[in-house]
Protein backbone atom coordinates (compact mmCIF):
# COMPACT_ATOMS: atom_id res chain seq x y z
CA UNK A 1 0.00 0.00 0.00
CA UNK A 2 1.33 3.41 -0.99
CA UNK A 3 2.26 5.82 1.76
CA UNK A 4 0.59 8.69 -0.06
CA UNK A 5 -3.15 8.83 0.31
CA UNK A 6 -3.93 11.98 -1.67
CA UNK A 7 -1.94 13.48 -4.45
CA UNK A 8 -2.89 16.61 -6.40
CA UNK A 9 -0.92 17.51 -9.51
CA UNK A 10 -1.54 20.79 -11.25
CA UNK A 11 -5.10 21.10 -9.98
CA UNK A 12 -6.85 24.12 -11.46
CA UNK A 13 -10.33 25.45 -10.97
CA UNK A 14 -11.67 28.21 -13.15
CA UNK A 15 -15.10 29.76 -13.30
CA UNK A 16 -16.50 31.76 -16.16
CA UNK A 17 -18.27 34.84 -14.86
CA UNK A 18 -20.48 37.35 -16.63
CA UNK A 19 -20.02 41.01 -15.87
CA UNK A 20 -22.89 43.53 -15.69
CA UNK A 21 -21.98 44.62 -19.19
CA UNK A 22 -22.41 41.02 -20.37
CA UNK A 23 -18.73 40.41 -20.88
CA UNK A 24 -17.37 36.96 -20.03
CA UNK A 25 -14.29 36.68 -17.89
CA UNK A 26 -12.40 33.77 -16.36
CA UNK A 27 -11.95 33.62 -12.64
CA UNK A 28 -9.17 31.30 -11.49
CA UNK A 29 -9.67 29.99 -7.98
CA UNK A 30 -7.03 27.30 -7.93
CA UNK A 31 -4.01 27.81 -10.10
CA UNK A 32 -1.94 24.63 -10.35
CA UNK A 33 -2.12 23.06 -6.90
CA UNK A 34 0.53 20.43 -6.25
CA UNK A 35 -0.06 18.72 -2.97
CA UNK A 36 0.26 15.30 -1.45
CA UNK A 37 -0.76 13.89 1.88
CA UNK A 38 0.82 10.98 3.67
CA UNK A 39 -1.28 8.35 5.37
CA UNK A 40 -2.00 9.06 9.04
CA UNK A 41 -1.30 12.80 8.86
CA UNK A 42 -3.53 15.57 10.16
CA UNK A 43 -3.25 18.51 7.80
CA UNK A 44 -4.84 21.93 8.18
CA UNK A 45 -5.52 24.21 5.24
CA UNK A 46 -5.62 27.84 6.23
CA UNK A 47 -6.19 30.96 4.25
CA UNK A 48 -8.37 34.02 3.97
CA UNK A 49 -12.10 33.74 3.22
CA UNK A 50 -12.87 33.14 -0.45
CA UNK A 51 -9.36 31.97 -1.30
CA UNK A 52 -10.62 28.56 -2.48
CA UNK A 53 -10.08 26.30 0.57
CA UNK A 54 -13.55 24.73 0.37
CA UNK A 55 -13.25 24.42 -3.42
CA UNK A 56 -10.02 22.47 -3.01
CA UNK A 57 -11.62 20.31 -0.34
CA UNK A 58 -14.63 19.66 -2.62
CA UNK A 59 -12.31 18.61 -5.44
CA UNK A 60 -10.34 16.28 -3.17
CA UNK A 61 -13.68 14.96 -1.88
CA UNK A 62 -14.90 14.39 -5.47
CA UNK A 63 -17.90 16.63 -4.89
CA UNK A 64 -16.59 19.00 -7.54
CA UNK A 65 -14.48 18.44 -10.62
CA UNK A 66 -11.26 20.24 -11.34
CA UNK A 67 -10.86 22.24 -14.57
CA UNK A 68 -7.41 20.76 -15.09
CA UNK A 69 -4.90 18.59 -13.30
CA UNK A 70 -4.95 15.12 -11.83
CA UNK A 71 -6.18 13.98 -8.46
CA UNK A 72 -5.12 10.64 -7.03
CA UNK A 73 -6.77 9.03 -4.06
CA UNK A 74 -5.21 5.81 -2.81
CA UNK A 75 -3.64 5.33 -6.23
CA UNK A 76 -6.88 5.85 -8.17
CA UNK A 77 -6.53 8.62 -10.74
CA UNK A 78 -9.36 11.09 -11.18
CA UNK A 79 -9.08 13.48 -14.11
CA UNK A 80 -11.45 16.36 -14.92
CA UNK A 81 -13.87 14.07 -16.84
CA UNK A 82 -12.39 10.64 -16.24
CA UNK A 83 -14.97 9.09 -13.92
CA UNK A 84 -18.75 8.82 -14.03
CA UNK A 85 -20.94 10.35 -11.32
CA UNK A 86 -21.87 6.85 -10.10
CA UNK A 87 -18.19 5.90 -9.73
CA UNK A 88 -17.38 9.10 -7.87
CA UNK A 89 -20.31 8.53 -5.50
CA UNK A 90 -19.13 5.01 -4.73
CA UNK A 91 -15.56 6.14 -4.15
CA UNK A 92 -16.75 8.99 -1.98
CA UNK A 93 -18.79 6.60 0.12
CA UNK A 94 -15.98 4.10 0.59
CA UNK A 95 -12.86 6.27 0.81
CA UNK A 96 -13.88 9.62 2.21
CA UNK A 97 -15.67 10.86 5.31
CA UNK A 98 -17.06 14.37 5.39
CA UNK A 99 -17.49 16.66 8.36
CA UNK A 100 -19.29 19.84 7.36
CA UNK A 101 -19.21 23.19 9.11
CA UNK A 102 -22.90 22.93 9.84
CA UNK A 103 -23.29 19.32 10.86
CA UNK A 104 -25.80 18.65 8.04
CA UNK A 105 -27.44 15.80 9.89
CA UNK A 106 -30.75 14.58 8.47
CA UNK A 107 -33.37 16.17 10.71
CA UNK A 108 -35.98 13.39 10.63
CA UNK A 109 -33.53 10.77 11.77
CA UNK A 110 -32.02 9.98 15.13
CA UNK A 111 -28.29 10.18 15.85
CA UNK A 112 -27.81 6.45 15.28
CA UNK A 113 -29.85 6.49 12.07
CA UNK A 114 -27.77 9.39 10.76
CA UNK A 115 -24.61 7.39 11.35
CA UNK A 116 -26.16 4.36 9.66
CA UNK A 117 -26.80 6.24 6.39
CA UNK A 118 -23.32 5.89 4.77
CA UNK A 119 -23.25 2.22 5.80
CA UNK A 120 -26.65 1.56 4.26
CA UNK A 121 -25.56 3.38 1.11
CA UNK A 122 -22.54 1.07 1.01
CA UNK A 123 -24.93 -1.89 1.11
CA UNK A 124 -24.56 -3.01 4.72
CA UNK A 125 -27.43 -4.74 6.48
CA UNK A 126 -29.57 -2.80 8.93
CA UNK A 127 -28.40 -4.74 11.99
CA UNK A 128 -24.68 -4.48 11.25
CA UNK A 129 -25.06 -0.78 10.39
CA UNK A 130 -26.86 -0.16 13.65
CA UNK A 131 -24.21 -2.06 15.61
CA UNK A 132 -21.42 -0.02 13.97
CA UNK A 133 -23.32 3.23 14.64
CA UNK A 134 -23.78 2.35 18.30
CA UNK A 135 -20.11 1.43 18.57
CA UNK A 136 -19.12 4.86 17.20
CA UNK A 137 -21.59 6.60 19.50
CA UNK A 138 -19.99 4.82 22.45
CA UNK A 139 -16.59 6.01 21.28
CA UNK A 140 -17.55 9.65 20.79
CA UNK A 141 -20.05 10.19 23.61
CA UNK A 142 -19.73 9.78 27.33
CA UNK A 143 -21.55 7.01 29.15
CA UNK A 144 -23.80 9.60 30.78
CA UNK A 145 -24.79 10.97 27.40
CA UNK A 146 -25.48 7.49 26.05
CA UNK A 147 -27.53 6.65 29.13
CA UNK A 148 -29.53 9.83 28.68
CA UNK A 149 -30.71 8.44 25.31
CA UNK A 150 -28.73 10.67 22.97
CA UNK A 151 -28.54 7.83 20.44
CA UNK A 152 -32.24 7.99 19.74
CA UNK A 153 -32.56 11.76 19.65
CA UNK A 154 -33.06 13.71 16.44
CA UNK A 155 -30.59 16.56 15.76
CA UNK A 156 -33.13 19.15 16.90
CA UNK A 157 -32.93 17.72 20.43
CA UNK A 158 -29.12 17.70 20.63
CA UNK A 159 -26.64 20.50 21.32
CA UNK A 160 -24.44 21.87 18.52
CA UNK A 161 -21.41 20.04 19.91
CA UNK A 162 -23.29 16.77 20.12
CA UNK A 163 -24.53 17.17 16.55
CA UNK A 164 -21.01 17.80 15.33
CA UNK A 165 -19.78 14.71 17.17
CA UNK A 166 -22.53 12.67 15.47
CA UNK A 167 -21.34 14.20 12.21
CA UNK A 168 -17.80 13.00 12.98
CA UNK A 169 -19.14 9.55 13.81
CA UNK A 170 -21.03 9.53 10.50
CA UNK A 171 -17.79 10.44 8.68
CA UNK A 172 -16.00 7.56 10.42
CA UNK A 173 -18.74 4.98 9.91
CA UNK A 174 -17.39 3.42 6.67
CA UNK A 175 -13.82 3.46 8.03
CA UNK A 176 -12.63 5.78 5.26
CA UNK A 177 -9.01 6.36 4.35
CA UNK A 178 -9.47 10.11 4.45
CA UNK A 179 -11.54 12.54 6.51
CA UNK A 180 -12.31 15.93 5.02
CA UNK A 181 -13.46 18.51 7.52
CA UNK A 182 -14.59 21.91 6.30
CA UNK A 183 -14.38 24.26 9.29
CA UNK A 184 -15.92 21.61 11.56
CA UNK A 185 -15.90 23.91 14.57
CA UNK A 186 -16.80 27.10 12.75
CA UNK A 187 -20.36 27.20 14.00
CA UNK A 188 -19.58 26.21 17.61
CA UNK A 189 -18.75 28.23 20.70
CA UNK A 190 -15.13 28.18 21.86
CA UNK A 191 -15.58 25.42 24.44
CA UNK A 192 -17.56 23.12 22.17
CA UNK A 193 -15.19 23.87 19.32
CA UNK A 194 -12.20 22.77 21.36
CA UNK A 195 -14.05 19.67 22.56
CA UNK A 196 -14.94 18.61 19.02
CA UNK A 197 -11.46 19.37 17.68
CA UNK A 198 -9.76 17.47 20.51
CA UNK A 199 -12.02 14.52 19.92
CA UNK A 200 -11.31 14.58 16.17
CA UNK A 201 -7.61 14.79 16.90
CA UNK A 202 -7.81 11.92 19.37
CA UNK A 203 -9.74 9.75 16.93
CA UNK A 204 -7.24 10.58 14.17
CA UNK A 205 -4.37 9.45 16.38
CA UNK A 206 -6.15 6.35 17.63
CA UNK A 207 -7.10 5.11 14.16
CA UNK A 208 -4.11 6.58 12.27
CA UNK A 209 -6.52 8.45 10.04
CA UNK A 210 -5.59 10.95 7.37
CA UNK A 211 -7.42 14.22 7.93
CA UNK A 212 -7.56 17.40 5.91
CA UNK A 213 -9.22 20.19 7.82
CA UNK A 214 -10.02 23.68 6.61
CA UNK A 215 -9.86 26.11 9.52
CA UNK A 216 -9.48 29.74 10.46
CA UNK A 217 -8.58 28.82 14.02
CA UNK A 218 -4.85 29.32 14.54
CA UNK A 219 -4.92 27.50 17.87
CA UNK A 220 -6.25 24.38 16.20
CA UNK A 221 -3.83 24.77 13.28
CA UNK A 222 -0.92 24.77 15.68
CA UNK A 223 -1.91 21.35 17.04
CA UNK A 224 -1.93 19.46 13.71
CA UNK A 225 0.93 17.67 11.91
CA UNK A 226 1.09 19.94 8.93
CA UNK A 227 -0.32 23.32 7.94
CA UNK A 228 -0.59 24.59 4.37
CA UNK A 229 -1.76 28.05 3.38
CA UNK A 230 -3.81 28.73 0.28
CA UNK A 231 -3.28 32.14 -1.21
CA UNK A 232 -3.59 33.42 -4.77
CA UNK A 233 -4.71 30.04 -5.97
CA UNK A 234 -1.54 28.36 -4.79
CA UNK A 235 -0.67 26.22 -1.80
CA UNK A 236 2.36 26.92 0.37
CA UNK A 237 3.72 25.06 3.36
CA UNK A 238 3.81 26.97 6.63
Amino acid sequence: MSDTIVSCTGIEKRFTTLSERGEESNLTILDGIDFSLKRGYFTAIVGSSGCGKSTLLNIIGMLDRQSAGVLEIEGITIGPESRSAEELCRMRNQKIGFVFQNHNLLPEMTAVQNIMIPLLIRGDGKKSAQARAEELMAELFTKEEIDSGVCNRPPAKMSGGQCQRVSVARALSCQPALILADEPTGSLDEKSAMLVFDMLHKIQRRHSLSVIMVTHDQAQARKVDRVVRLAGGRLNEE
Binding site: C89, R90, I117
Partner: peptide, 16 residues
Protein backbone atom coordinates in the same frame (compact mmCIF):
# COMPACT_ATOMS: atom_id res chain seq x y z
CA UNK B 1 -33.04 19.37 -1.63
CA UNK B 2 -30.25 20.09 0.80
CA UNK B 3 -30.75 16.75 2.54
CA UNK B 4 -30.60 15.00 -0.81
CA UNK B 5 -27.36 16.87 -1.46
CA UNK B 6 -26.06 15.60 1.90
CA UNK B 7 -26.85 11.96 1.13
CA UNK B 8 -25.34 12.47 -2.29
CA UNK B 9 -22.18 13.80 -0.62
CA UNK B 10 -22.21 10.73 1.62
CA UNK B 11 -22.08 8.57 -1.49
CA UNK B 12 -25.69 7.92 -2.53
CA UNK B 13 -25.56 7.32 -6.27
CA UNK B 14 -28.16 8.80 -8.65
CA UNK B 15 -29.45 5.26 -9.14
CA UNK B 16 -30.02 4.79 -5.42
Amino acid sequence: LKEIAVVSALGATPRL
